[in-house]
């Protein structure tokens, strides 16, 4: 489990990194926290000739709130920093509650938000949160900067809309409206393992107390995070009570063909979907115990 030979370069600025990416093209891989890339290299499933190490580029890490109320997180920000951030807890409670589910403490100390999103594991938590929140992923290359909506960013298993010469530099979460509530739940074989099935949900109520905008995203089930449109539709306009939840969540598996692996069959994932959707929505809609 030793990687094949490679060269390592650690540019100090984003501009240098982008230029190196153009120079080495397909022969290069970007190194962030290394928590996904390095194991894959150790197994020689990836054998890049060059590693372009982002860790010296300080400007890529950081959490801030913009005047618009948006939450902006630099791609190189460690999971642990997001997990502990009071700003994140206030400005995006869904993201905050998802963080402890991302791997284990040691991995969160090193792994980055950008690495997780670009790696695009279908069972990862952060892509689902981005989709539920309509986050924008900001990509940059020598050609310039562009914003990609989360819904367009995740294209399949380990596949994103990012070009070969682009880096993910920042993730922007729209301002969190007052009164929006959230739920987050997942099932994994051990705590910290990738999810077999998980749900990230946000719900808003109108003045009358009826359910308004609802976002219900499933992850770990198909090749990318998916919004459960049928559940969202069924929930809208209801009183958000137990019966409404149960009946809306019942549609969770509609139209999905869950994947199967040796940890979970497609049937098991199909069974989990309505259960977890109901529970995540219940977290969002019933008064918090804790």
């Amino acid at each position: 489990m030793k990687p094949a030979p490679f060269d390592h370069v650690a540019p100090a600025t984003l501009e240098e990194a982008l230029a190196l990416l153009v120079e080495h093209g397909e022969n290069a891989k970007v190194l962030a926290g290394g928590q996904s890339l390095v194991p894959v290299m150790a197994l020689r499933l990836a054998t890049p000739a060059w590693l372009i190490d982002l860790n010296r580029i300080a400007s890529l890490a950081g959490i801030r709130q913009l005047d618009t109320g948006e939450l902006a997180i630099g791609a190189l920000t460690r999971h642990a920093a997001v997990e502990r951030s009071e700003l994140v807890a206030r400005a995006n409670p869904l993201l905050a509650s998802a963080m402890p589910w991302v791997a284990h403490t040691a991995i969160r100390n090193r792994g980055t938000v950008g690495g997780s999103l670009v790696h695009a594991d279908p069972a990862a938590e952060l892509p689902a949160v981005c989709l539920a929140c309509d986050a924008t992923l900001v990509a940059q290359s020598v050609r310039g900067r562009r914003a990609i909506a989360a819904a367009a960013f995740f294209r399949g298993m380990f596949e994103t809309a990012l070009g070969a010469d682009e880096l993910l530099v920042e993730i922007r979460f729209p301002a969190w409206p007052d009164g929006r509530r959230h739920g987050f739940i997942e099932i994994a074989r051990r705590h910290g393992d990738f999810a077999i099935c998980g749900i990230a949900a946000t719900v808003e109520r109108d003045r009358a107390g009826r359910v308004g905008d609802a976002r219900v995203v499933a992850f770990g089930v198909v090749d990318r995070p998916v919004r459960l449109a049928a559940v969202e539709r069924a929930l809208a306009g209801t009183d958000g009570g137990e019966d409404a939840l149960r009946s809306a969540a019942g549609a969770a598996a509609d139209g999905l063909t869950p994947r199967a692996d040796h940890h979970a069959s497609a049937e098991y994932r199909s069974e989990l979907l309505p259960v977890l959707a109901r529970r995540a929505l219940a977290q969002a809609l019933t008064p918090r115990r804790r």
Partner: peptide, 8 residues
């Protein structure tokens, strides 16, 4: 008694 086996 894995999750998958027990679910089955």
């Amino acid at each position: 008694l894995s999750l998958n086996n027990l679910a089955a």
